[in-house]
């Protein structure tokens, strides 16, 4: 944990408190430093998608907070926003599926790496290729069947009871999220084949030291 560097040192107790407070921000992801694993024009698109994912994540969380509080205020003044729950449903699906791709991009998916870490380097690299390939395959499979699911929901015409909009509008993020995640793992597999190092994602190197990022 590094000390907070927001302020010039002052003997003010508040600042000391701020400095002592643990911060999670030392590993915030800086989107402007993200380098795509794809070459040329495709890379530009990929960086664009990464930006959109980041914005969707942040906006989703903020909107969720606003929506939930608005419901409280509404209830207190006697006008419950009875669509509030459905809006949150839509947002949590959006966040989850925008997020899994963003997490794959930055090597943030949770894994149990104890045995993996004990393997010798060449085996670890081969293993990482295998992991990335199988994960990508699973994601593409789910892309296909979530598309199937979205289309069948659209054809059934199921509506959100309170919002009165077609239900497939809020689940359409699933196939997109699975597809982009599959794409990230595909690129990770390729990167591990052509590069001499081991990569958790196209932009995240698998570490040897005990630093935090790569182990999760």
């Amino acid at each position: 944990m590094t000390l907070d560097d927001k302020h010039a040192p002052e003997p003010d107790p508040d600042v000391v408190a701020a400095a002592k407070a643990a911060s999670i921000d030392d590993d915030d992801i800086d989107d402007s430093k993200y380098v795509s694993g794809l070459p040329g024009f495709l890379g530009v698109i990929d960086v664009g998608i990464a930006r959109i994912e980041a914005i969707l994540l942040a906006a989703g969380v903020l909107l969720m907070a606003i929506n939930t509080m608005a419901n409280v205020v509404g209830r207190v003044v006697g006008h419950t926003l009875y669509f509030s729950e459905e809006v949150n449903q839509a947002l949590i699906i959006l966040i989850t599926f925008a997020g899994i791709s963003y997490a794959a991009r930055h090597g943030r998916h949770i894994r149990m790496s104890a045995f993996f870490d004990a393997l010798p380097f060449p085996l670890r690299r081969a293993m990482m290729v295998l992991i990335a390939v199988i994960t990508a395959a699973a994601m593409f499979l789910l892309t296909w069947y979530s598309l199937d699911y979205v289309l069948s929901q659209a054809s059934r015409g199921r509506l959100m009871p309170a919002l009165n909009i077609p239900q497939w509008w809020i689940i359409v993020w699933a196939p997109m999220g699975f597809f982009l995640t599959g794409l990230q793992y595909t690129l990770t597999a390729i990167k591990n084949v052509i590069d001499k190092d081991i990569w958790l994602s196209t932009s995240t190197l698998e570490g040897y030291d005990d630093s935090r990022e790569e182990e999760i």
Binding site: R75, G78, H79, T80, Y82, E85, A162
Partner: peptide, 10 residues
């Protein structure tokens, strides 16, 4: 219509 404040809740 009954005069209550309907409150959907899971």
């Amino acid at each position: 219509a009954f005069g209550a404040t309907p409150t959907p809740l899971p």
